[in-house]
């Protein structure tokens, strides 16, 4: 039987916890029986996706309010990895986030986080949930 894992982590709305959350992604990638590709790249991608999603919640949804919290739920089933990041903020329009400009003359400092998440996961949704919003990200396995 393949391993099924359900993790729930809640951290204060502060960037000092990013490394902790990223490392959970790295360690998780090392124990996923269902994954058969480049495990080091997979570990890096989970580190990246979790970091970007939590930064998005901290800075954009929760407006950097240190008294708020970010909740992360990670569910590993037979066929997919399902990551949800809950914020307590007003939210934003995911569809309204454009891909970053690539031409050297049009470079912006910001705006690559959602692009990176979309590039590394199979589906990304953002919706209302329990006093805030949730960013839902799915990755097929096997």
């Amino acid at each position: 039987m393949k391993n099924k894992i359900d993790l729930e982590i809640t951290v204060p709305n502060q960037t000092r916890y990013l490394s902790l959350i990223g490392k959970i992604g790295v360690d998780l990638a090392r124990v996923v029986d269902q994954f058969h590709g480049d495990r080091e790249a997979f570990a890096h991608h989970l580190n990246m996706v979790l970091t970007e999603a939590v930064v998005n919640a901290i800075k954009h949804a929760n407006a950097a309010d240190p008294h708020k919290e970010v909740q992360i739920r990670i569910r590993l089933s037979d066929k997919e990895l399902f990551i949800r990041v809950y914020d307590q903020g007003r939210g934003f329009d995911l569809c309204g986030v454009p891909d970053p400009a690539f031409a050297p003359g049009q470079l912006e400092d910001k705006g690559r986080g959602i692009f990176i998440i979309r590039s590394l996961m199979d589906s990304v949704e953002y919706k209302k949930a329990k006093g805030g919003n949730v960013l839902e990200m799915r990755k097929r396995l096997g």
């Binding site: 580190n47 990246m48 470079l107 400092d109 910001k110 690559r112 990176i116």
Partner: peptide
């Protein structure tokens, strides 16, 4: 070993 979009953004800012 790890850079996120904020780190990339700071390098872009320095480049500009």
């Amino acid at each position: 070993r790890f850079i996120d979009s904020s780190g990339l953004g700071v390098l872009v800012s320095g480049f500009k």
